[in-house]
Amino acid sequence: MTTVLQVVGLTLTTFGVSFLLIAALGVWRLPDVLSRLHALTKADSAGLALIALGAACLKGRPDSLLVLGLCVVLVALSGVTIGHLIARAHLSEGDLE
């Protein structure tokens, strides 16, 4: 049972870390600000969520699940809000193609 959890946890964490790496890559490679925001709001939140889930599996204790869940909610919420606010500010410059 514990080995299964270990394997699952490591796999999830690996996936999460690769999402974070790809998000950083996206900020490098995507062509404009609004497209880069997509990397911030999606890949980053999902990556952290997977890492937190993996950490909870590896830890195997319910009380750390609460802390990790709160972390994920906060990061996802701030990513979404700040992404929206940047897009909004960018849009009101009047460059609606």
Partner: peptide
Amino acid sequence: IAAQLAGT
């Protein structure tokens, strides 16, 4: 955006 990514 870069600073926010570093925070995450």
